[in-house]
Nucleic acid binder design. Structure first.
Lengths: 202, 202
DNA sequence: ATCACTAAGTTTATCGGTTGCGCTTTTTTA
DNA sequence: TAAAAAAGCGCAACCGATAAACTTAGTGAT
């Protein structure tokens, strides 16, 4: 499974060296005070090589691959216990992820602080996170027996993901998340269960 | 009230010349094919002057000041007819703005098409639009008798504004907006009127 | 073991947006 | 009218990002 030849191993190594050097330098001197040239030199590669490994640019140096977060999102919707609504399941997943982040390796708080205090990194992280919107919307649509491009599913997915950005930096982030998901849960249950699914008089 | 000295008049003139030249060139050759140097030269000013007038950069050249859209948003919430909910009022405002945009001066469709087909401009426009989030949240909070930093108000404001970006490019944009606002209306009415305001079991 | 193939990496050069600096010119104001 | 304020200028540089042509080093099949 993980049988990588020397080639792929070296490739992964340089990529890791770049990511490590970048994170270290960013933490030491601050994101803006470090140029891509500095990072490349610290990793002992050329600038072009850096961009070969991180075509999305400087911000991408900080974020490792996602892979399983999207799977976790759709699984949370698909495999939720009976009687639990979709928003409730998503709220639960976010809660778990949050408590998992508190632990993790040391230096992780510094990492989070760097992102929180650096607008380009915040923005990039948000975009990465929102990239799962379509997959989540599809999962929700399947679950509710709605077309994959239903605006309601799309909106619920988008709002649920965006909620974490919305409560960012709050001291009462957890209860704020609760309140936002209460709004989504109310709205969603009203759209799926009873009377008109889409009808709405203004 | 509008007594501008010669100085401010000239300043406004230069700014307008820059905006006009930029829009014209962008429409003629495409956004990416036009550099800020081209724009500056077409407006007969230096590049430095261009950035003095538009510190936000190239994208800002296309967007004129907003000023009254934010006022319209808070007014729609504050002065809405009795019996109408906040989401309904916002939905109505967006509907009016949309129908108003269809008319407007000639060349406006080209303007919209330019923005829609140019990712950086789309992104910038969205950010400008979302900038009214706090004012709108405050208006909603005042209306509902909630603290200004209530997560529910913040979320409703954010979601309502973000809805227009969410339905972008859809053929059924109007009905999609209806559906999204139905979700918000259901959720919001559930949070304000009856039982628990924030309580929510997961 | 060799040889052709492929992919990583390098060098160099360039492009476009953006900023800082020192300077001139115009307008306001004391 | 002198001085302060502000608009503008030209220049040079910085920075992120990309392109082209070339070298180096694993890979795999014969």
């Amino acid at each position: 499974m993980t049988e990588m030849g020397r080639r792929e191993r070296k490739k992964a190594a340089t990529r890791q060296a770049l990511a490590d050097a970048a994170l270290r330098l960013f933490l030491e001197r601050g994101y803006d005070a470090v140029g891509v040239r500095d990072v490349a030199e610290a990793a002992d590669v050329s600038v072009t090589t850096l961009f070969k490994h991180f075509p999305d640019g400087k911000e991408a140096l900080v974020f490792d691959e996602d892979t399983d977060r999207e799977a976790a999102l759709v699984a949370a919707v698909r495999d939720r216990p009976v009687g639990q609504t979709v928003p409730q399941a998503l709220r639960g997943l976010l809660h778990e992820e949050r408590s998992r982040q508190v632990r993790a390796d040391p230096g992780f708080p510094d990492f989070l602080h760097l992102i929180d205090t650096t607008p380009p990194l915040r923005e990039y992280g948000r975009r990465m996170w929102l990239r799962h919107e379509n997959a989540l919307a599809a999962a929700i649509g399947t679950d509710a027996g709605l077309p994959a491009d239903d605006p309601g599913c799309q909106a619920l997915a988008h709002f649920a993901l965006d909620a974490v950005a919305l409560v960012h930096g709050r001291p009462d982030a957890e209860t704020a998340l609760d309140r936002i998901f209460a709004l989504l849960d109310n709205g969603w249950s009203g759209m799926t269960s009873p009377g008109g699914a889409g009808g709405w008089e203004r």
